[in-house]
Design a protein around this nucleic acid. Structure first.
Lengths: 208, 208
DNA sequence: TTGCCATGTTTTCTTTTTGTTCTCTTTTTT
DNA sequence: AAAAAAGAGAACAAAAAGAAAACATGGCAA
């Protein structure tokens, strides 16, 4: 069987993992958008290589048919989706209050990333002006670093956890609430550990 | 079986996913509006291709009958009940902008009810003080009545849809934005049709 | 009845999208 | 430095999609 380059493997992996996100076999132009490319010609070379390797086949019977996986290539199916772990409650000024039994929450793909994520419930109003209310759920991508302006879960002095905007410099780390009634807090870098970055938020309006 | 082009597949998907949103089998002109086309003749070609492929059949017994799915074609959709239909975009002052192809969104149980629900994406800042921002998704329970204080999807004069707080009296219906820069609007009861009630809200912070 | 309008149907033309090939530059690997 | 891989972008022919107009027909109201 023909040898596949690294990039071609990436393209194939994308096809394999995202077949069902297409309503119909994708055209080269569509795939370019998905893969962040701007040239159909470049992608075409990869697709052709994958066809020659037998991993993919052109949509038969139609001149402008698009691309699909071969039957055998589609075999390797992805495991059943289980949802994200619901860890517990985060309230400014306390450690994260973990649940005794881990719950799982089904979360829309749009609210999570391909990295490991978990769900917390927010207690308090410290991020109210960012549209994050008391009782909301937030989806957190597990990470130990973040960019300025990100909303992060930060652990302070190994004791208290909080959800705040991050502004970090060389000398100090600022944790900014989104609430005019609260003040920003400044710490030395070694006091603050990033535990994750906000990637999604959810709220229920159901009456219980 | 005959081969279907990509566009024809899209048209079929739309039919398959929206059969029940038509009170009666739709005419070509109706379908044109839904699909954003202006020419019946163009759509006609697609419909004919779908009929030849056996995916669709003309409504019999009436010469000007419209189109409906074949029994077999309708079957295949019923199996995978994986999420809520993502209908389209709601922006204050315009009709709901429906997607050509409906896709489905997996939504946490906590954000939906046991009644039929659907998902819209919010455009604009009219509910910003209620923590509903531009680009957020909202989960709507399909209903034709609501209580005062509920956030509802309301159709005004059969023309424009909007997401607002509801305050209804005997003489007038008030639709209140949650934005100090906007004013409440007052209507006669017969001008306003409730299309659903907000039961959930979601936001993505992912950078794309 | 008559006339009108919405329907499906056909036809002609234009525009957009498609796969494909090519050349050239940039990036990565050896 | 050299080679391989990847990408951008332009060009092209063919296919598909669309617009617009015209036509036939049946339902319906004046």
């Amino acid at each position: 069987m023909k040898v596949i380059t690294r990039r071609q493997q990436q393209v194939f992996n994308y096809l394999r993992d995202n077949t069902d996100s297409f309503s119909c076999p994708p055209s080269l132009a569509e795939l370019c958008v998905r893969l962040g490319m701007t040239s159909r010609g470049s992608l075409y070379k990869h697709i052709m290589a994958l066809i020659e390797a037998g991993l993919i086949e052109p949509f038969a019977g139609n001149k402008q048919g698009g691309i699909r996986l071969t039957s055998q290539a589609g075999q390797e199916q992805l495991q059943p989706e289980q949802g994200l772990p619901f860890i517990g409650v985060i309230a400014a000024g306390k450690p994260i209050e973990a649940l005794a039994t881990v719950d799982y929450m089904t979360v829309p793909d749009a609210l999570k990333t391909d990295k490991p994520c978990y769900v917390l419930q927010v207690k308090g109003d410290s991020m109210i002006e960012a549209g994050i209310f008391d009782g909301d759920w937030v989806v957190i991508e597990q990470r130990d670093c973040a960019n300025n302006g990100d909303i992060v879960v930060a652990l302070i002095d190994n004791a208290e956890a909080t959800l705040k905007y991050l502004e970090q410099g060389a000398e100090q780390v600022l944790l900014l609430p989104a609430n005019a009634n609260m003040t920003a807090l400044s710490y030395r870098p070694e006091q603050v550990v990033i535990q994750g970055v906000l990637v999604g938020q959810m709220r229920s309006y159901r009456v219980h």
